[in-house]
Amino acid sequence: MHRIHVIHENPDWLPPLAEAFARRGLPWTEWNLSGGVFDLAAPPPEGVFYNRMSASSHTRGHRYAAELTAGVLAWLTRHGRRVVNGPRALDLEISKVRQYAALEVAGVAVPRTVLVLGEPERILAAAREHFAGGPLILKPNRGGKGLGVRLFPDLDALEVYLHALPDDEHPADGLWLLQEYVRAERPVITRAEFVGSRFLYAVEVDTSAGFELCPADVCAVDVGPSPAEISAPRFRVLEDGIDAGLRSRLEGFLSANGTEVAGIEFIRGSDGRRLVYDVNTNTNYNPEAEAKAGLAGSDRSGPGAIAAFLGAELAASTTRAA
């Protein structure tokens, strides 16, 4: 039987998608790739495969889930299966450096960034050479949810942090990024959501509580302030969307890189620059923001749009196989 196969490593993120599938009566199954055994000599099952592997999988004890997924996607592709967010999307998900290179090819501006591999003294020397006295941001090349992103007012603060950093808090791939601090017009960023490589809607996110910006309710269990500590909703759907020129460039970027479902985050600096700093190919949605915007339960919601898109792809796949 042809069905939708959802590749992931975190069951906590599946319920909204499962509900959207149920509303449409779509047959589906989950492939939890936190582990697994695959006979590469056998053909995969029929259907459409939706890759939701996350860059933050290593923070949940699944250090090699992304590597396993890369192998599975190669197997699926070799057998001609329809894969949504295939190998190229996974490659972008687990490397901000490769994201930035691909964004710049598409004509999208990114923050000035320096890639570093090495001990604290090398990181400090690079910061001294490229960012003078600060402020600057330090982030892992492979992160997810904004984890590990820290702002330092000066190099002294960076030095103290690096020399006290436990080994288990180093980046999963060993690569650090030093990045310019972009002073925003307001303490917000914008996250644009795309399904089928086409713009769906944009969310304004309050960053005053920090950089851990996963919009899903489940992400708020262990991180972030309580509702009483926030004077306004942290996530708000923007009625006017985003600039048409940026929208076109981002859609072109996604299409050129085989990425059909994504959330792309950007910031507008006080100097007028608009810079994209993160691409999330495993995207989650904020149900409260969608409900307030009148999107919940419809095909204009994130889960609803994905279900509609995958349902259409499944129908096309079934027809081709007939």
Rank of each mutant, 00 (worst) to 15 (best):
L103A: 09
V105F: 09
V105P: 04
V108N: 05
V108S: 09
A109S: 13
V110Y: 01
V110E: 03
V110Q: 10
P111R: 03
P111M: 04
P111F: 02
V114G: 07
V114N: 01
L115Y: 04
L115K: 11
L115R: 13
V116R: 00
G118V: 04
E119L: 12
E119D: 15
E121P: 04
E121M: 07
R122Y: 06
R122E: 15
R122C: 10
I123R: 02
L124C: 04
L124A: 08
A125D: 14
A126G: 03
A126I: 00
A127T: 07
A127K: 01
R128Q: 11
E129Y: 05
F131W: 05
A132T: 11
G133L: 05
G133R: 05
G133Y: 07
P135T: 10
P135E: 12
P135D: 10
L136C: 05
L136K: 01
L136P: 00
I137V: 15
I137R: 03
L138P: 07
L138S: 00
K139R: 09
P140V: 12
G143N: 06
G144K: 00
G144Y: 04
G144N: 01
L147H: 13
L147W: 11
G148Q: 08
R150S: 13
R150V: 12
R150E: 14
R150D: 08
L151P: 01
L155R: 07
D156G: 13
A157P: 05
Y161C: 09
Y161I: 04
L162M: 02
L162A: 01
A164C: 08
A164K: 05
A164S: 14
A164T: 09
L165C: 10
P166Y: 03
D167Q: 13
D168E: 15
H170M: 13
